[in-house]
């Protein structure tokens, strides 16, 4: 099966392990991951301070490149930006015509059939992981964490992580803070608040006797790793899935020493 997907800038650096584990999973499941040709940055949080048109342009360009197809988006922030832009383009004909005009500079066209945007978590619920589970694998309790942008304001399936991880053989621990905020871009402001936020999230996982926390967003993982005090194993849910399927940790981007 061919899958068109938007990797996002972090896949090359910050969230390289996320990207590696997705690739490893895909090759295990015989999915053909095809990156969106000539994709560009979604503008991350910075579009919030730039004029509206800039953020819209960055997203519309990707939407135009993927028009009419189903687009899998791995990063939560990219997912949010693309969804938001898509909503504006659908509802506001003025922005739509402006964007069509801007995209003409690059010879692109904004077709009326915008792509269907799909988050990675929802996409993986289509696969029955219990069929692929490695016989040698013994699941350990993990807690899940969705973060903000998969939950609001364009909610995805908030049972998706529970579904796939428990199908893969992990006892999943329900948490109440699974849609809370990790502090997002706050590290840039050097704020003490973020430590409290991350500490509270990990406190819950530890309190409920989880051995690890499965996350779905590169920024969440970064924050939880840097500010998690004391440190707690935080992994992308795809890494956990890979382990359950028997894929070698190094192919999932998990360092040897752990």
């Amino acid at each position: 099966m061919k899958v068109l997907y938007y990797p996002g800038c972090s896949s090359e650096h910050l969230a390289r392990d996320f990207y590696l584990s997705i690739e490893a999973l895909a090759s295990f499941l015989a999915l053909e991951l095809e990156p969106l040709p000539d994709w560009n940055c979604c503008g991350a949080r910075e579009i919030e301070e730039a004029p509206e048109g800039v953020g819209l342009f960055l997203a519309s360009r990707n939407l135009a490149l993927a028009s009419g197809k189903e687009l899998l988006v791995t990063c939560s922030l990219c997912f949010h930006n693309l969804k938001r832009a898509q909503n504006i383009l659908r509802e506001n004909p003025i922005w739509r015509s402006r964007m069509a005009e801007v995209l003409k500079d690059e010879g692109l066209e904004l077709s009326p059939d915008l792509p269907r945007i799909l988050s990675l978590t929802e996409f993986l619920t289509r696969i029955d992981f219990s069929r692929f589970r490695s016989p040698h694998f013994r699941g350990f309790p993990v807690a899940v964490y969705y973060g903000c942008f998969l939950s609001r304001p364009y909610p995805t399936d908030l049972q998706a992580l529970e579904k796939v991880l428990s199908a893969a053989g992990y006892p999943v621990i329900p948490t109440t803070l699974k849609t809370h905020c990790c502090g997002g871009h706050l590290p840039r402001t050097d704020s003490p608040v973020i430590k409290n936020l991350c500490r509270r999230l990990l406190f819950e996982a530890r309190q409920k006797n989880a051995s690890g926390l499965a996350v779905a967003c590169p920024v969440c993982k970064l924050n939880l790793e840097i500010y998690g005090d004391p440190p707690f194993p935080v992994r992308y849910f795809t890494q956990y899935l890979g382990l359950a399927l028997g894929i070698s940790p190094s192919w999932l981007g998990i360092p040897e020493e752990e």
Binding site: A50, P51, E52, G53, V54, L56, F57, L58, R61, R98, M99, E101, V102, L103, D105, E106
Partner: peptide
Amino acid sequence: RALEHAREW
């Protein structure tokens, strides 16, 4: 060029 164009609004 397109990015500059988008900034104008």
